[in-house]
Amino acid sequence: MKRFLVLCVALVTALAVYCPVSARGREAGNLNDMRYEVRLGWGGYPVADVINFVDRNCGGYFGGRSLSSIYGDYSGPVYMTGVISAEFDFVLRRWFTLSLGIGWNGIRGETHDGVTSSLKSKDSGYVATFLPQARFTYFSREYFKMYSAVGLGLSYGQFRGRAVISPCFHTVPFGIMAGGRVFGFAELALGMLNIGATAGIGVRF
């Protein structure tokens, strides 16, 4: 893990200090010359978190339920916020951006007594993910871009007495960003962080 982080820092530093001659000649104030982005986003279905933290009571026999599963303590509905993410991005090339992001998914639920159905406890938890991503921009205009991304990070979560540390492999097969210094973005995510549509806003500087 430590070597991985050192390698990331070295890569960012090497790419940051090497500027092509053509980039220096651009008109000052061009959005594509801005080297940094900050993004805030939300969305997608956190399938890995659901698998890790939601135990489905499928019972044993009698068509799927044993007496113990019928009358034991049971879980009420479980809710998740979805992944709320914050990123700091290094625009190293017009076609390549290194993103360092943190995602947070909140979890809540209730546990009930199996015989009386009375509330026994209110449960809450979270999953936090550190996710560096490599973003590849294959269509770039000043106010509109299309890209894909891939990343590998680490997740830590806890809920109902269970703590899970797991790797997080994530991809964005398709993403777009539109706007000027302040922009909006939308992505189709497919990975261990979440699956589905995510969106958000960002600032370039």
Partner: peptide, 16 residues
């Protein structure tokens, strides 16, 4: 705000 955007990911266990 965060709780307001929560969505249900599990309907709950079967029980008596």
């Amino acid at each position: 705000v965060f709780l307001a955007v929560s969505c249900r990911v599990y309907k709950g266990d079967n029980h008596a």
